[in-house]
Design a protein around this nucleic acid. Structure first.
Lengths: 250, 250
DNA sequence: CGCCATCTGGCACTCAGTGCACGATATCGG
DNA sequence: CCGATATCGTGCACTGAGTGCCAGATGGCG
């Protein structure tokens, strides 16, 4: 909940070196054929340091999901209560897509890995599950008091995640060449049609043409105030970029 | 696809002994505090034999899901093409609930375990994911040709699973005392209302009052023929019970 | 210069999971 | 009744992930 200035330690380069070394070996030799010792040998660091940055070998395949989940939680927490709930969680899902779309090559490589390594698929499921829970918790809060509040919340969250994944996989299968935003907008529009309350716009991504921005903002407030939520350790250039796009579109 | 008589090797008692020993230790000492050596020591068998029956330590917590998944696949494969797709996958989901409801005490114990052990939660997710994929694949076949066939299939499958899980967890939290069927019927009715095509009954579990039976049957055919699908190794008493209920309700 | 905190590396250890080979058992044809 | 073969249980040794602990390096700061 604090507008971030420069992040003090920036980013540990060692973490990135480990990710790079790991992916090099994963793609050329396979995930299970690569041991943690191989990775640290290629990265030139000690074995113990690997587990300092990644609690398990699987985590190195999803280096930025933890941060993305935090972004999404912050985005939902900072929302104004005026927004229609279903549209809000759809916008939250768009955050995840944006993370994937930031590094298309990396995302496609990872997709190929997770597709053929059962262990990675299982791990990805647990990651996706946390996103779904975040959406469901938000919706449970919004639907508190309604007769079937938690049921409705869980079902909608699952539907949104499924639609998002459907679009995401379609985009990944095209090697990142198709239009990711268009695909996911269409998919999310489908669930909005199925669950949206009448007051919601029948289609289209967002009203003002401004889709949900990264870091959980900007959020339109009654009188043209723009709130931008950021994590303290967010890279500065991304904050600047977000400010530019937010004001460029207003 | 064959009505089962007596299963030749019945069931290996060793498997059940391992499950019993494992759960005793899991509940009294915790999952992660229990090693495989502890389990095999209590069961009085060799360590190697454990991994003969269960590919991993986690599998011993879900000893019957593999079979249930096979039942569900068979149920969907044996369906008549007349049935409305959404209602059919809802009936398939009821199969899973029935498996849980067969051993309430066991299911509740397992629920408590998976709720507090992250590794087991992750494993359960991969299990549930396979159910969801089975439903989605079925729906993809039924919706082949439609404009957004796969999207619709994925979203509905996810919604059905979410509704089922919502009801299941509610039942488990009540220690198996509430009415599982009623709860799940209500939850599935919600998604049927959201996605069902006009021709479907607006509410209620099934038209003839006969919910989907175990083993993937019975399935109503045009002229009062009842097909009952069973796995070859299914216990005889369950087959008998299914026949009784199927005919008792017709 | 010395004191702090943080980062990193190395070592030893536990435990899950696998490959292999040996003994017991069972089933079957002769 | 008896060897042949297949199946099942078991012990052993091995790999590899993940952890706890401690020692060395690095980097401000008074």
């Amino acid at each position: 909940m604090s507008s971030s200035s420069a992040a003090p330690p920036a980013k540990p380069p060692m973490r990135d070196a480990l990710v790079a070394a790991a992916f090099r070996l994963f793609v050329e030799r396979g995930y299970e054929q690569t041991t943690v010792d191989d990775i640290v040998a290629l990265a030139g660091v000690g074995r113990r340091s690997f587990f300092r940055y990644f609690p398990s070998k699987e985590d190195v395949v999803f280096p930025d999901h933890e941060g993305c989940l935090a972004d999404m939680t912050a985005f939902l927490a900072a929302g104004d209560p005026q927004c229609e709930p279903v549209r809000r969680v759809c916008d939250a899902a768009r955050l995840v897509l944006r993370m994937y779309a930031e590094n298309p090559a990396f995302s496609v490589q990872r997709y190929r890995l997770t597709k053929q390594v059962p262990g990675l698929r299982a791990y990805e499921l647990s990651v996706v599950w946390r996103y779904e829970r975040a959406l469901a918790e938000y919706l449970r809060g919004r639907y508190a008091g309604r007769p079937d509040g938690t049921l409705r919340a869980d079902v909608i969250a699952a539907a949104v995640v499924a639609a998002h994944n459907n679009a995401l996989r379609s985009w990944l299968r095209s090697d990142g060449r198709s239009d990711a935003d268009e695909t996911v907008d269409h998919a999310l529009g489908y669930v909005q049609d199925a669950f949206g309350t009448g007051s919601a716009a029948p289609a289209g991504p967002a009203p003002g043409g401004a889709p949900a921005a990264l870091f959980g903002g900007p959020v339109e407030h009654p009188d043209d105030v723009v709130v931008l939520v950021s994590r303290r350790d967010a890279p500065l250039w991304r904050v600047v970029q977000e400010i530019e796009t937010a004001f460029g579109r207003t």
